[in-house]
Design a protein around this nucleic acid. Sequence first.
DNA 1: TTGTAGGCGTTATCAT
DNA 2: ATGATAACGCCTACAA
Lengths: 342, 342
Amino acid sequence: MKRITIRDVSERAGVSTAAVSYVLNGREGKVSSETVAKVRKAVEDLNYIPDFSARSLANNKSKLIGVVIPQTEDRKQLLLQNPFYSELICGIEARLRQSGFHMILSGVEKGEGYLDTSMQRNLDGAIITGIYQESFYEDLKKVRMPIVLVDSYVYDSHFHVVGIDDELGGYLATRHFIENGHTNIALVTGLIRKDGVVEKRFLGYKRALKEAGLFYNPDHVFEHSVTYEYGQEAARLIATKYPEITAVFATSDLMAMGVMQGVRDEGKEVPEHISVIGFDDISVARMCTPPLTTIKQDAIAKGIMAAERLLAAIENPDAEHSENLMVMPLSLIERNTVRKLP
Amino acid sequence: MKRITIRDVSERAGVSTAAVSYVLNGREGKVSSETVAKVRKAVEDLNYIPDFSARSLANNKSKLIGVVIPQTEDRKQLLLQNPFYSELICGIEARLRQSGFHMILSGVEKGEGYLDTSMQRNLDGAIITGIYQESFYEDLKKVRMPIVLVDSYVYDSHFHVVGIDDELGGYLATRHFIENGHTNIALVTGLIRKDGVVEKRFLGYKRALKEAGLFYNPDHVFEHSVTYEYGQEAARLIATKYPEITAVFATSDLMAMGVMQGVRDEGKEVPEHISVIGFDDISVARMCTPPLTTIKQDAIAKGIMAAERLLAAIENPDAEHSENLMVMPLSLIERNTVRKLP
DNA sequence: TTGTAGGCGTTATCAT
DNA sequence: ATGATAACGCCTACAA
């Protein structure tokens, strides 16, 4: 069964391929309504479906968006196990599809770049989440498609950025502990990398401590790649070696939940013995017991926003780039994991 | 900045474009090792990156795989909020990338087909999860790319299938309750659809009841689309209207966790008042409190397997189709949500 | 072994 | 308003 081409349609409709192309692309000003009707009918009859590869070749528009998310270091798998990314992807995909774009979702090997993929596929744009080495971004700048960075503090006029005020989030969480009488507050966090979100959350944590006249103790910072298991581990360390700690600010809900489990593993209770605040407000945060107090951000909305910024930039390649930083709202959600100390 | 083409490479290397194409595609038998070296050098020097659109146009191979997962009915967003799908996707993407393929991830609108996408993008294959209407599959059969159905009981020689023995899963869970002395066992389940996985799990549930000489009570079946919230709702109903029920088999962990929360909302405890078994063993199942007894399947492995089957079918289009059903292992994981009745 | 040239499906530039 | 026709980048008979 051979493919139906634009030529088949043109013959059937008794017009030229150019005419068909015009009506297909909505340039209907250029063609008589009679021709439009004939073409539409032929398209319908033949069940014609355009070939995007050919289109891409002819006009460099692929209707394809590259989406990159971090992957686990060990198994090279997407970090989708962190629900935050799942939700982000949901938002991106939904918005993209709504505008007739498709999404190529992939991780990128450590040390590899994204230039190859972007050129091979003639991507119309890309959404990048996670933090990479300098050269990765330098590479990306060489390509002329619009790029949206999600959760990055790599400011550069080449990139659009969608994020939140991570420093504020860290500050709010820590201050909430302080307001509830806590003075020994641990930080359980993902790897603190330059220009990354956790670095800012860490900064907010320190600011709140300083503001309250509290001593910042580096021993109370537990840093590791973002996993549930390390949350458990950190709780264990805290219970056994740092009895003075009464509160834990985890820079992601995933770790916070690990901490909660770890606390219980040690025969203690949340929040009776240890208070916990997380970050993200992934959907399980309200499902766990006790429901987790956390810094809420709306990952789905973030994804939708990232997609929208990208689509706008694709529409209008040389628009004002001054307004290329979008900061989404965030708030502290009080649930049941923070105890008020007397 | 113009694109580097195969012609640029050929000129730089002082050979023909055909020669370049040959070494690029590994047909090195057709070309002298000297030429190979020259071409490689030129490719390197020029930083040549092939255009997959052009390739796809020329030989109908796109190195692109379509992956379809269900979406929420209301918001048209991917069902990634169910970690089971996240993990599945992780497996698929990792395996695909390893072989140089890219994945287009998308949902499909109710009533829409996937034929358009598959033709537009010249997909080399597709992995479909979820259950759709008859016509969806009929459509899919018209296209000649290999297709792997994950978790489907739509047997057809056109499709490869990767799944588990869902009926057995349902049976094992139910029997486990019975062995622990439970006789009034509710089923909290996603929509029971023909040829879907939950239908089989439901069948397994009934078989176990029957085998034990227990009465199957339709009132004890709580059916709804798969959400955490409905799990809560079902628990509420059970607590208030069906006090005789002592055990709940949920056909997905997501619902099981909702049930657990719902039970607590009613001031009762798991497993003291209500025992719970889930299905899937998503990663949070072991993280929740108490850790959830569940039917374990390895979603990541399932994804990898699905990708592998597809890749094999692409390699070898007219291979034996008799072995196109792959059943992955499954097992009951005992944790702490089932109480042994006296 | 190597090179030439035609074709893949579409868009865009010209004439008409 | 419409229709030839030349790109677009690559592959692959076929010819040399």
